[in-house]
Design a protein around this nucleic acid. Sequence first.
DNA 1: GAGTTTGAAACT
DNA 2: CAGTTTCAAACTC
Length: 383
Amino acid sequence: MASCEDSGNNMNEGASDTISNPSHGTSSMNDSNGKCNCMKSQCVKLYCQCFSAGNFCNDNCSCKNCLNNEVNKDSVNQIKKEIQSRDPRAFEPKVIVDQGARNRKGCICRKSECKKNYCSCFAFKVGCSRHCQCQNCMNEYGVKGSSSGAKEQERVNDSNNGSKNVETMDNGSSSQSHHPPPPVYDNSPNQLSENSNARADDELGNSNVNNIPMPMPSNQVASPYHNFAVQQNHVAAPYYYRPLTPVHIQSSRNNITEQQSTNLFGDPDWQGQSTFLRTNPPFYYDNNVAELSSIPRIQSSHQYLPHQSHGFHQQVEEAPLGAMTLQLPFLRSSQQPNNGDGTNMQLNLHPHLHGHGPSPPPTADYEENHHHGMFLLQNNRPQ
DNA sequence: GAGTTTGAAACT
DNA sequence: CAGTTTCAAACTC
């Protein structure tokens, strides 16, 4: 029996691993999720997939000398902080989603050719990316260095033509699929059991439910958006319609404060518009593209995208001048968003996006009419 | 189930 | 930061 039978299985204060930690995941990540067999780590190192996923160990675990439980919550949190001091993203989702999905840290496979579950990318059912240092990559979900991104884009475009519905893609049900299926999400409700208020953030999107470490911005910097032109990019984001689970929501909190928001996003061109729906997750800047760490949440017309784009801000500041694009998975508006030059941006919106609450799957009509909500922010900052 | 292989995490 | 060690999961038999 498990040695850590006492606890609930949520650490509560950290970001749970939205997308379950494959560690060396089994063929079914959901099956392996929340279950470990740690012998020496006391389940308080990232070796432990429960710990790594932000969960306490539970009855299904076979760990020994487990500290990762409710009883030792304070110690666990302290250890977590120490780990986060080394890697602030240690407890963030392991897979990020932009036009597809990829393993955030990439893999370093030498022998497995990325075609076994030893490979963290493969285990997540995502393709390898330029972030990987694998050798002889043969990942069936996407080979490093291939035009997997382009292929993914093709897939996106294919889906735009109505040839494939989102639900099919979301299911990722065919393991033989040529295209990478989306990451597997842990829908287990217990991950939010003690933290259900994570959903109930206020209308401005302020939420400090979790203590997710975020890159700290420079508060002295003026709005990073001043010199950005916003263009609609008629490319669908195949995943962003996926309903968010409570786990997603919980793990995608950030702890930006109102004061920080004001400092960061004081640009009246942006702040004053109820244009953007908030996306929960921080943005990860990655070369020339800022990518979403997780799936955006459509919640309220009063929530501004920049409001919680804490990480994004910093990344923008560091972006190569003139080269930066940001892909924003969706927009909605009762007002036209401003292009920054006095003109309004033309929007084609999913009709459901006008409402509150979770976004339903897109309609066929939406697909067919290319009412996509992905935008690019071109970095036009002067040199 | 035991032993081996593997790659991520931790350590030096 | 690179190399080494430790660790737990994946895998094989």
